[in-house]
């Protein structure tokens, strides 16, 4: 319990934490609004046949906003290695597993709070923008609402996605110790696979990549319609991302326990 309190104090007293959390919410909402604003029904065969997943569209800003979660997760441990405070941390709480668990808990809580703010702001922006672009209830695109089960699942899932990405980054930062290397590796893992997917000519390979990549699999949870077209189910995809995060945390924990501080 004291480890938890200590980690919270450490996180809270760094100005960069607040910048990153603000960026997480702000970039997610702003990028989501920008993408939503750019899409209209003009290119659809007809507005009703567009089958636009408006909830997913409104929440798409998370693809960029997640950088803040990555940096926050990596710096939670990597920053301590960079500044040398890790020695003091481990002196105060010699059980290294407890240190990592406490860090994971506070990072998850902070990202969940900022992520919720970003997601709610994105949905609110989408609700305002979408009808103006032709996505009206008459066309089969009812206004975004958390009372709608699928939309609520997409929203909650997006917050969970951000938390898992932060935990994945925390694990990577602990395992690699060098923040620069960890950030590069995590960003590459998240962003590059979608790029590769577009390159793979074979649709079977595309589907396979999308099922296995943390970002595409994890963001399957944002889909609210035509679920049968997804390469992987919403919660199964979240499971894939959770697997990545668990593996990264386990690697971080093993290395933290085995290594000299």
């Amino acid at each position: 319990m004291s480890a938890l309190h200590a980690e919270w104090t450490k996180l809270r007293t760094l100005p960069s934490t607040w910048w990153l959390l603000a960026a997480l919410a702000g970039i997610t909402a702003a990028a989501g609004a920008a993408v939503t604003g750019a899409v209209d029904t003009s290119a659809c065969p007809d507005p009703a046949a567009c089958r636009e997943d408006t909830a997913k569209l409104a929440l798409s800003g998370v693809q960029i906003g997640q950088v803040a979660a990555v940096v926050l997760g990596v710096l939670a441990v990597g920053g301590e290695y960079a500044t040398g405070t890790i020695a003091a941390t481990l002196a105060a709480v010699p059980r290294r597993g407890a240190v990592l668990a406490a860090k994971a808990a506070v990072v998850a809580a902070a990202v969940a709070a900022a992520g919720s703010a970003g997601v709610l702001a994105s949905l609110a922006a989408g609700r305002g923008i979408l009808p103006g672009n032709g996505f009206t209830a008459a066309n089969g695109h009812p206004p975004l609402s958390l009372l709608d089960g699928a939309t609520a699942r997409a929203a909650a899932g997006t917050v969970l996605y951000l938390v898992l990405v932060a935990l994945l980054s925390l694990g990577a930062g602990t395992a690699v110790r060098e923040p620069a290397a960890a950030i590069t590796a995590v960003l590459a893992l998240l962003w590059i696979v979608p790029v590769l997917t577009r390159l793979a000519g074979d649709p079977r390979w595309q589907e396979r990549l999308e099922r296995l990549a943390p970002m595409t699999a994890g963001l399957a949870v944002q889909a609210t319609r035509d679920l049968d077209r997804l390469p992987i189910g919403p919660w199964a995809g979240m499971g894939v991302l959770a697997g990545y995060a668990a593996a990264a945390l386990a690697a971080g924990w093993i290395l933290l326990a085995a290594r000299d501080a």
Binding site: A38, A43, Q63, I64, G78, P179, I183, V195
Partner: peptide, 23 residues
């Protein structure tokens, strides 16, 4: 290093990342 790498990669990859949903 952390913000510098993030900024540069974001600028170089942003069209690739968000392009799928965009018109």
């Amino acid at each position: 290093s952390a913000p510098a790498i993030t900024i540069v990669l974001l600028l170089l990859l942003v069209p690739q990342i968000v392009a799928t949903g965009l018109p």
